[in-house]
Write a protein that binds this DNA or RNA. Structure first.
Lengths: 189, 189
DNA sequence: GCCACCCTACCGACCGGTCGGTATGCTCAC
DNA sequence: GTGAGCATACCGACCGGTCGGTAGGGTGGC
C-alpha cells in the first residue's frame, strides 16, 4: 500500500504526463505540483521511468482483475461481452488521464518491461477473443467478421476514449458504455 | 513540391518520431539519419516543431481530400460508409508511422495550430456523421445506436491501427478494411 | 569570353539553458 | 542510536537553436 506522499507523487505525475506528455514534464514540475521535493521523489522511485511504469502497472492490474472477475461469473457470451465492455469503458472514463498516458507513452517501455507488458496484454486479448469465438461456435454470434478483428475494434475504441471523452460532456460513462456494447453486439448478430 | 533533401528530412523524422517519440528524438539524430547536417535542416524548417507540424499537415490534407472525393461520388449511405472506411484503413495502413506520430504527439500542437486542427477534424467528423444520419433517416440504417457514437467507434479503430497492424502480418490492408467495414455496417443494420 | 556580384543550399562549431539524477545531512519516531 | 523520510545544493550531459562562413551555379555588364 502506497504512503500518502507516494500517492500524491503519482497523482501529480499522471495529471502532468496526461496534459503535457512524459518527456515534456520535468521532475521538478512533478515535485512542485505534489508539494514536495526531489529528495522525496527519489526516495520512493528509482527513476522517472520507474514512476511511469508504476502508473502502467496500477492500470493493467486493475483491468486484468476486472476481466477475470467477469469471466468468473459464468454468463452467456453476449452478456459477458456486454459486461466486459461496460466495465472497461466505465473504468477508462474514470481514469482518462492514466489511459491517455498509457496509450501515448507505451513505446517508452524498455525491452524487458515491454515483453512483460505484451504477455499481459496478449492474455487479456485472448481471454476476450475466446469469449467471442465461443459465442460464434455456439451460434449465438454471427461468424461473418473474424473474432480477432472484433476484439481489435472493441479494444481500439476504449483506448481512443481519452481523445474525446469529457467527464462534463453530455453522456455519462454508463450511457456510453451501453451504446458501445449495443453497437458491438449488433455487429455480432 | 518539396526538394529531395526536404523529403529525406521528413522521412527520417517520421521514422524516428514513430519509434522513439518526438521529445526523445534529438535534432542531431534526425540529421544523422537523413545523412545531412543541422544547417540543412534549419535551412528548410524554422524549428523542430515546424517539422512535426509539416508531418501532420501532409496527413490531414490527404485524408480530407479522400473523404471529399468519396462524398462526391454520390453513392448510397451504406456504400459511402464502406468506401470511407476502406480508403481510411488502407491509407492508414500504408502510413502507420505518420499515423502513430500523429496520434501520439497531437497534444504538442500550440494553441493556434490546435484550433486549426480541431476545426479540420470537426469538419471531417461531421461529414462522416451526416452520412450515417442520412442513412438512419432514410431507414437504410438502424437508429438503435446514436450516429455520433458510431463515428467515434469507427474513427477510433483507425487511429489505433498503428498499435497492432504490421505490414508483414497475415492480413492485407484491403482485407482488414473489408472486415472493419463489414462489422461497422453490420452494427448499423 | 569573363568576371563581379549575388543567391540558394548547406556546413559544423558553439552557446545558454535545462534536465535527470546524486551526495550529504538533518530530524524525529521508535 | 538508528533508520526511514525527507530537504538542499549541486553536477555533468545533452539539447534546440544560432551564426559566421563556404561551395557552386546563375546572370548581366562590358
Amino acid at each position: 500500500m502506497p504512503s500518502a506522499t507516494e500517492q500524491r507523487i503519482i497523482d501529480a505525475a499522471v495529471r502532468l504526463f496526461a496534459s503535457q506528455g512524459y518527456d515534456a514534464t520535468s521532475v521538478q514540475e512533478i515535485v512542485n505540483a505534489a508539494g514536495i521535493t526531489k529528495g522525496a521523489l527519489y526516495h520512493y522511485f528509482r527513476s522517472k521511468d520507474d514512476l511511469l511504469f508504476e502508473i502502467y502497472r496500477l492500470l493493467i492490474t486493475a483491468q486484468s482483475a476486472d476481466m477475470d472477475r467477469i469471466i468468473g461469473l459464468g454468463l452467456s457470451a453476449g452478456e459477458t461481452v456486454r459486461e466486459i465492455l461496460a466495465s472497461l469503458v466505465s473504468s477508462t472514463a474514470e481514469r482518462v488521464d492514466e489511459t491517455a498516458v498509457f496509450v501515448r507513452e507505451l513505446h517508452r517501455l524498455g525491452e524487458e518491461r515491454m515483453t512483460d507488458f505484451r504477455a499481459e496484454r496478449r492474455r487479456y486479448h485472448e481471454t476476450f477473443l475466446a469469449v467471442i469465438e465461443k459465442g460464434q461456435a455456439d451460434g449465438e454470434f454471427s461468424s461473418q467478421v473474424p473474432a480477432d478483428t472484433v476484439v481489435r475494434i472493441a479494444l481500439g475504441v476504449v483506448n481512443q476514449l481519452p481523445m474525446w471523452f469529457r467527464p462534463d460532456g453530455p453522456k455519462t460513462p454508463g450511457q456510453l458504455a451501453g451504446e458501445i456494447a449495443d453497437f458491438v453486439l449488433a455487429g455480432l448478430r
